[in-house]
Amino acid sequence: MADHAERTRHVVVMGVSGSGKTTIAEGVVARTGMTFAEADAFHPRANIEKMESGVALTDEDRGPWLEALNAWMQERSEAGDSTAITCSALRRRYRDVLRTGLPSLDFVHLDGPAEVIRERITSRRGHFMPPQLLQSQFDLLEPLGPDESGIVLDVRRPPEEIITAAVAWLGVRG
């Protein structure tokens, strides 16, 4: 099994809420054949209720969620599957939890002006993340460090361009 894990690739499409993580991750998956997971599906109900009520999550709230995402990627890796997940991954310590025990983890950081992302988040429907929590995410956001494998892509570019750039940078073929 370890031999399979060493040949897997794992990518987190990261950024604040409304940056387009799901659209870009699904595009990467369509082009590469990686296995997809939406990080929001891993949140315990208490986290979702907290966000729905306009309360930002704490590090204590995020801990079990990040550990569950990491466990899922490790399980997929052991099965020989490469993965692409969405996750805000706002802080270095969150990314460190996600990275634990994996042969590699790359980050595609979707970044852009707060006003562009605020407009997106305000116009979407059916998501539990209210627009008033967006600033708290920008406040927490720590840029990728020079020792972290990642690329930063501008959310103002068309999705297809972002997906093409991400896949080219990853060097993964389906």
Score class of each variant (00 low, 15 high):
Val152Gly: 06
Ile151Gly: 07
Leu140Arg: 14
Leu170Gly: 00
Glu38Leu: 03
Arg156His: 11
Asp147Val: 12
Gly63Ser: 12
Arg157Tyr: 09
Arg118Asp: 13
Ile85Arg: 01
Ala37Ser: 10
Val55Phe: 01
Pro158Trp: 02
Asp154Glu: 11
Gly27Ala: 02
Val116Glu: 06
Met34His: 01
Pro131Gln: 06
Ile117Ala: 10
Val29Thr: 07
Asp3Glu: 14
Ala79His: 02
Thr35Phe: 06
Leu98Glu: 08
Thr23Ile: 09
Thr35Ile: 12
Arg9Val: 12
Gly80Cys: 04
Ala89Gly: 12
Leu134Gln: 07
His127Glu: 09
Thr35Pro: 04
Pro44Gly: 05
Gly27Glu: 05
Leu153Ile: 15
Val16Arg: 00
Glu115Arg: 10
Arg76Asn: 13
Thr83Ala: 09
His10Val: 04
Gly145Pro: 00
Ala39Lys: 02
His4Cys: 13
Gly54Lys: 01
Ala39Trp: 03
Phe138Val: 11
Pro103Tyr: 08
Pro131Leu: 09
Ile85Pro: 07
Ala56Leu: 07
Thr164Lys: 14
Tyr94Asn: 09
His109Tyr: 13
Ala68Lys: 14
Arg7Tyr: 04
Ile163Leu: 00
Thr164Glu: 15
Pro143Leu: 10
Ser77Asn: 00
Arg118Cys: 06
Glu6Phe: 03
Arg93Gly: 01
Arg9Glu: 03
Pro131Gly: 09
Pro130Leu: 13
Thr100Trp: 11
Asp139Trp: 12
Phe128Thr: 10
Val28Cys: 00
Ala46Leu: 11
Phe36Cys: 05
Gly18Ile: 06
Thr8Gln: 01
Asp61Trp: 05
Val55Ile: 13
Asp81Thr: 07
Arg31Met: 02
Leu90Thr: 05
Glu161Thr: 13
Trp169Ile: 11
Ile48Arg: 03
Ala68Val: 11
Glu119Gly: 14
Ala5Ile: 08
Thr23Met: 02
Val155Phe: 14
Met14Ala: 08
Phe36Val: 07
Thr100Phe: 10
Gly126Leu: 12
Glu75His: 11
Val16Pro: 02
Ile117Pro: 07
Gly101Cys: 13
Leu69Val: 05
Gly112Ile: 14
Ser19Trp: 05
Val116Thr: 14
Pro143Gln: 09
Ser123Leu: 15
Ser53Met: 11
His4Thr: 13
Arg124Val: 13
Ser53Gly: 09
Ser19Met: 02
Gly112Pro: 08
Thr83Gln: 02
Arg76Trp: 02
Ile121Glu: 07
Leu134Phe: 02
Met14Asn: 01
Tyr94Val: 10
Asn47Tyr: 02
Leu153Phe: 09
Arg173Phe: 08
Ser19Gln: 01
Phe138Ser: 08
Arg99Ala: 14
Ala79Pro: 02
Ser53Thr: 10
Glu78Leu: 15
Phe128Tyr: 15
